[in-house]
Design a protein around this nucleic acid. Structure first.
Length: 883
RNA sequence: GCCGAAGUGGCGGAAUUGGCAGACGCGGCGGAUUCAAAAUCCGCUUCUCGCAAGGGAGUGUGGGUUCAAGUCCCUCCUUCGGCACCA
C-alpha cells in the first residue's frame, strides 16, 4: 500500500538526500567543546541477526535520538553511539550448517543492520562504532577477565551445570527457563563439569545497596529480588552417634524450639555419609533420582512433597530433644547450608511434609500469646514466643535477636546473611565467543598436537600476559559442538604450545555473549585506543551514562552483570563512578496488529473466549475441560460488540477476543521496518512509533495509524509551500508559544506521544489560516526536527536557512503568552457542570458568582433554592451547593 | 502462591497538586471537490432520552473519603511482566 499522494512530498527522494548530506558533512561526529554541558545517551546495542531490523528496534532508538537531537540543539555535547553485540549462537549455528565462518556471517549482517539504521536518520556518531567480535575490542574484554582473575574473582570449579545437549553448551541459570534453553527451547540437564565462574556473590551487597541512588524503574526491585538478600542465623545441630554436626540456615531462629525434624538436601555432601546402613539403599535411590531431575521436572512435580528418612538423628540444641533427619528435594543443596531445621508449625512446606510423614507439629509462635493445639495450617506471621523455655513471651523481632545472641554465646550458631544470587557460570563450550586468556601446564611424553598422550593440569591456571592480547580465535574446519571441552579443543595447533621446553594447553572454553556487552559503553568513549581501554580524558568527558534505553528483558541479566564488572573496574581504579547508568528506561514491546480471535474445539464448535486459557507451549486450552482449542482469525465484519464484549454476530453467546500477539515469524504478523520506510518514509515510521502511546508501555502495531502521521507530515510540508506571512495573529502566536513550551517539556519527560499531539494541534490551526506565518512555521519545524529530521531539514532549507537544523538553537517561548488572562470557568451546581463563565483568571469570588448566576442554565438549577455553600478555585471551578 | 505494572469510546490513547472525562490520531458517517474514483479539504462521531433547549448514565467490580474522584483509601475481578519449594 502506498500512502503517497500527488501533493505530498516524496520521502523516498527527500530522506536519502539528507542522509547523504549528513554523511558527507560528518554532521553526526561528536566533539567535546569546553564549557558545554555533556550528555551520554546510550541504546542497548543489538545482536546483528540475519533477520535484520525489527520494528521494535527503532522504538527505543528513536526515543534516544529525539533526546539526543533536542539536547544538542539546547547546547549540549551529546554522545550517542551505536555498535554490535556480535558474538553469539546463531552465527555459529549457521557455520555448523553451512561451513560459513561466523565472522563472515556476522560481517554481512552488520552491513545490513547499519544500512537499515542509517535509513532511519539516527544521529549516531558512526566513527565510534564498536563490534564485540573485533580483536581490537575483545582484547579489552580479555583484559578485564585477567583483572578478574588476578583478584580471585574468576575461578574454576567442578559444578553441576545446565548442560544443553542440543546446543552442546552450558547455560547460565538465567538462560534456562522452565528447564529449557532460553534460546531455542531445547531441554537442559544437570551435569557436573569444570567451569569458569565469576564471583559476583562477592558484590551481592553492593549490587543490592547501590541501586538506591539510581533513577531506574521497577527494575531495581527485580534486581533486589534476584540478589535475594536475607538475614538470619546458622545453627549447628549435633549429630547422634556421629562426630560433628549438621549446620542449617534459618531466617527464623525464633522458631528453633519448634524444630521437630531436619531435612538435608539430596546433593548435600553429608547425606550419604550420615545415612544409617538400614536406610542406605532407599536413600541412594532417592538421591540418584533427584540428581536426574531437571529443573523442569522438579517444578512440574512440585505438587506433592517427597522425601525419605535417612535413619540418622540430631539434637535440637535448645530443647535437647533428638529429632529425625530426612532427605528431600524440596531442600536445595545450593542455597544456604543445604540443610534446614524443619518447623512445621510455622512454615508451610514443613507443615505439608510433617503431615505427610506424621511428624510432630509444635506451636512456638502464637498470635495472641495463648497456647493452641492441633493447628490446621502453618502460622507464618510474627507473634509471641510460647513453649520456648526462658524466652517465652518475647515478640518475634526481640526473640530472633535474643536466640541468636544465645547461640553465639554458646558457640553453636551465628548471625548470617544469605543471598539467592549464585556465582556466574562464565564458560561456554562454543567457538564464536572471546577465548578465555588462560592456559595450563601439560604433562606429555611427546607432541600432543601429533597425538601423544597428555594430561592437562587444570588446577594450575596461568594468565596469558597482557602483551599477548588479544588472544584470537583459531580457524576451524568444523564448528560442531558435542565435546564438553568445546570446539576449540579441535584446534590442536592453537591449543597446545611450548614455552621454555614445556608444553602448555590453552583454555578451550569461550566467554558467554554477556561478556562483550558488560562494558561496551566504556569503549564508546575511546573506541580506537590501542594502548588503553579508554583514555582518562575521554572518561571525564562523558561518563557516566545519563540515559540508558533498552528492553526490560535485560532487567536482570545484562544490567546486573554490567554493574558487577563496573564495580570491579571501580575497585581497581579504572572507572570513577560506582554505577555506570544513572537513568534507565525500558521501551515497551511493540506487538503485532490486533486480531479478532475465536476459539474452536476439536469438533469445530465455537467456544466462548472467556473459557480459553493459555496453557503450556503456546497452546490454548478450555480452562474447564482442559481440551485444546484452536484459535481462528476472524474478519471484523463477523464480530460485534454486545454488553462490553465482542461476540460472533451469528452466535452472540460466543465471546471473541481481540488480541495483539507478540510479533513472530510463525504467526506471520511481523512488520518489517524496510517496508514501512518504503511505503511511508523513515520520518513517518519514527513519528508513528513515538505517537503510538507512552514509551514504556506495551503497544499493538496498527498499520492504519501510520496514515495519520503521514498526513500530518504532509501538511507540515504543504504549509511550507504556501505563501508565507510576516504577520501572525495573537491567537496563533499564543498557540505557537505554548506548543514550543509543551514539546520541550514533553521531550524532557520522554512523553513523545503528547508532544506530537501538540504539534498536530498547531498544524491544524496553521492549516486553517490563509497564509502561513513564517515565525510559526520556523518554530514548528525546529520542534519537529528531533522527531522527523529529514522533513525538518528540507523545510528548514526551504525557508532559506543553511543546513543543518541540528545546529540551530532550540526555539524560545514567551511565558506570558502561555497563560490566559481570560478563561472559561466551569460552573457546577451540586458538583455537576451546568454552565461556563468567561472571567479574568484572578477574578474575585463575588465576580465569579455573579458571572455564574448570569448563565441561564445555572439559574434554572439554582432558582428557588438556597445557596448553602460556594467553593471557588480561581481558574478551575466554581461549585454552588444548593439545597 | 509472591512481587511489580495496568484496566478510560469501535481501536491506539489524552486528562499538572483531586477541579469541565474522552485531547490527538485511526476507523465510521455526512458534505465539498471530481465525469467518476483515489488523494485532499470541511463537519459530526462515549452511550442514551429529546425536534431542540436540555436531561440521564458513564473511566474493570463493590464500598468509602470529599463541595468535587479516572485521579486518594479499602474490597474483589481481569490482563500483562517477573519470580517461584530460597528455609
Amino acid at each position: 500500500m502506498l500512502y503517497r499522494c500527488a501533493m505530498a512530498y516524496d520521502p523516498l527522494e527527500v530522506e536519502p538526500r539528507w542522509q547523504k548530506y549528513w554523511e558527507e558533512h560528518d554532521t553526526f561526529r561528536v566533539t567535546r567543546r569546553p564549557g558545554r554541558p555533556k550528555l551520554y545517551v546510550l541504546d542497548m546495542f543489538p545482536y546483528p541477526s540475519g533477520a535484520g531490523l525489527h520494528v521494535g528496534h527503532p522504538e527505543g532508538y528513536t526515543a534516544t535520538d529525539i533526546v539526543a537531537r533536542f539536547k544538542r540543539m539546547n547546547g549540549f555535547d551529546v554522545l550517542h553511539p551505536m555498535g554490535w553485540d556480535a558474538f553469539g549462537l546463531p552465527a555459529e549455528q549457521h557455520a555448523i550448517n553451512t561451513g560459513t565462518h561466523p565472522a563472515a556471517t556476522t560481517h554481512a549482517n552488520i552491513q545490513i543492520f547499519r544500512r537499515q539504521l542509517k535509513r532511519l536518520g539516527f544521529f549516531y556518531d558512526w566513527s565510534r562504532e564498536v563490534n564485540t567480535t573485533d580483536p581490537g575490542y575483545f582484547k579489552w574484554t580479555q583484559w578485564i577477565f585477567l583483572k578478574l582473575f588476578e583478584r580471585g574473582l574468576a575461578f574454576q570449579a567442578e559444578i553441576p551445570v545446565n548442560w544443553c545437549p542440543e546446543l552442546g553448551t552450558v547455560l547460565a541459570n538465567e538462560e534456562v527457563i522452565d528447564g529449557k534453553s532460553e534460546r531455542g527451547g531445547f531441554p537442559v540437564v544437570r551435569q557436573p563439569l569444570r567451569q569458569w565462574q565469576l564471583r559476583i556473590t562477592a558484590y551481592a551487597d553492593r549490587l543490592a545497596d547501590e541501586l538506591e541512588s539510581l533513577d531506574w524503574p521497577e527494575t531495581k526491585q527485580k534486581q533486589r529480588e534476584w540478589i535475594g538478600k536475607s538475614e538470619g542465623a546458622e545453627v549447628d545441630f549435633p549429630l547422634v552417634g556421629h562426630p560433628g554436626h549438621l549446620t542449617v540456615y534459618t531466617t527464623r531462629p525464633d522458631t528453633l524450639f519448634g524444630a521437630t525434624y531436619m531435612v538435608i538436601a539430596p546433593d548435600h555432601r553429608l547425606t550419604l555419609e550420615i545415612t544409617s546402613p538400614g536406610h542406605r539403599a532407599e536413600v541412594e535411590t532417592y538421591v540418584r533420582a533427584a540428581a536426574r531431575k531437571s529443573d523442569m521436572e522438579r517444578t512440574a512435580l512440585n505438587k506433592e512433597k517427597t522425601g525419605v528418612p535417612i535413619g540418622a538423628r540430631a539434637v535440637n540444641p535448645l530443647t535437647g530433644k533428638e529429632i529425625p533427619i530426612f532427605t528431600a528435594d524440596y531442600v536445595l543443596g545450593a542455597y544456604g547450608t543445604g540443610a534446614i531445621m524443619a518447623v512445621p508449625a510455622h512454615d508451610e512446606r514443613d507443615f505439608e511434609f510433617a503431615q505427610k510423614f506424621a511428624l510432630p507439629i509444635v506451636e512456638v509462635v502464637s498470635a495472641d500469646g495463648a497456647l493452641h493445639e492441633g493447628l490446621d495450617a502453618a502460622y507464618v506471621d510474627e507473634g509471641i514466643a510460647v513453649r520456648s523455655g526462658q524466652f517465652d513471651g518475647l515478640r518475634t523481632a526481640e526473640m530472633k535477636a535474643q536466640v541468636t545472641a544465645h547461640l553465639e554465646q554458646q558457640g553453636i550458631g551465628r548471625r548470617k546473611v544469605n543471598y539467592k544470587l549464585r556465582d556466574w557460570v562464565f564458560s561456554r563450550q562454543r567457538y564464536w565467543g572471546e577465548p578465555i586468556p588462560i592456559y595450563f601446564p601439560v604433562k606429555t611424553d611427546g607432541d600432543p598436537r601429533s597425538g601423544a598422550a597428555y594430561t592437562i593440569d587444570y588446577g594450575s591456571p596461568i594468565a596469558v600476559s597482557e602483551a599477548e592480547l588479544p588472544l584470537a580465535l583459531p580457524e576451524l574446519d568444523d564448528y560442531k559442538p558435542g565435546d564438553p571441552s568445546g570446539p576449540l579443543a579441535k584446534a590442536l595447533d592453537w591449543r597446545f604450545f611450548q614455552k621454555d621446553g614445556k608444553w602448555f594447553a590453552r583454555e578451550t572454553n569461550t566467554m558467554p555473549q554477556w561478556a562483550g556487552s558488560c562494558w561496551y559503553y566504556l569503549r564508546f568513549l575511546d573506541p580506537h585506543n590501542d594502548a588503553e581501554i579508554f583514555s582518562q580524558k575521554s572518561y571525564d568527558d562523558w561518563m557516566p551514562v545519563d540515559l540508558y534505553m533498552g528492553g526490560s528483558e535485560h532487567a536482570v541479566l545484562h544490567l546486573l552483570y554490567a554493574r558487577f564488572w563496573h564495580k570491579v573496574l571501580f575497585d581497581i581504579g579504572v572507572v570513577k563512578h560506582p554505577e555506570p547508568f544513572s537513568k534507565l528506561v525500558h521501551q515497551g514491546m511493540i506487538l503485532g496488529e490486533p486480531q479478532m480471535t475465536a476459539y474452536r474445539d476439536g469438533s469445530g464448535a465455537y467456544v466462548s473466549a472467556d473459557l480459553a486459557k493459555a496453557g503450556d507451549d503456546d497452546q490454548v486450552v478450555n480452562k474447564e475441560t482442559g481440551v485444546a482449542l484452536e484459535p481462528v482469525k476472524l474478519d471484523e465484519s463477523a464480530v460485534e460488540k454486545r454488553a462490553g464484549h465482542f461476540v460472533l454476530k451469528e452466535q452472540p453467546a460466543v465471546k471473541v477476543q481481540s488480541i495483539a500477539f507478540k510479533m513472530s515469524k510463525s504467526r506471520g504478523n511481523v512488520v518489517n521496518p524496510d517496508d514501512v520506510v518504503r511505503d511511508a518514509g523513515a520520518d513517518s515510521l519514527r513519528v508513528y512509533e513515538m505517537f503510538m502511546g507512552p514509551l514504556e508501555q506495551v503497544k499493538p502495531w496498527q498499520t492504519a495509524g501510520i496514515q495519520g502521521v503521514r498526513r500530518f507530515l504532509d501538511r507540515v510540508h504543504t504549509l511550507s509551500t504556501r505563501e508565507l506571512s510576516a504577520e501572525m495573529d495573537a491567537e496563533t502566536a499564543k498557540l505557537v508559544h505554548r506548543t514550543v513550551k509543551k514539546v520541550g517539556e514533553d521531550i524532557e519527560a520522554l512523553r513523545f506521544n503528547t508532544a506530537i499531539s501538540a504539534m498536530m494541534i498547531l498544524v491544524n490551526r496553521l492549516n486553517g489560516l490563509e497564509r502561513t506565518p513564517r515565525e510559526a512555521l520556523e518554530k514548528l519545524v525546529l520542534c519537529l526536527s528531533p522527531f522527523a529530521p529529514h522533513l525538518a531539514e528540507e523545510v528548514w532549507a526551504g525557508l532559506g536557512h543553511a543546513p543543518t537544523i541540528l545546529d540551530a538553537p532550540w526555539p524560545a517561548f514567551d511565558p506570558h503568552l502561555c497563560v490566559d488572562e481570560q478563561l472559561e470557568l466551569a460552573v457546577q451546581v451540586n458538583g455537576k457542570v451546568r454552565g461556563r463563565a468567561l472571567l479574568a483568571k484572578d477574578a474575585s469570588e463575588d465576580a465569579a458568582r455573579a458571572a455564574a448566576l448570569a448563565d441561564e442554565n445555572v439559574r434554572r438549577h439554582t432558582e428557588g433554592k438556597v445557596i448553602r455553600k460556594v467553593v471557588y478555585v480561581p481558574g478551575r471551578v466554581l461549585n454552588l451547593i444548593v439545597g
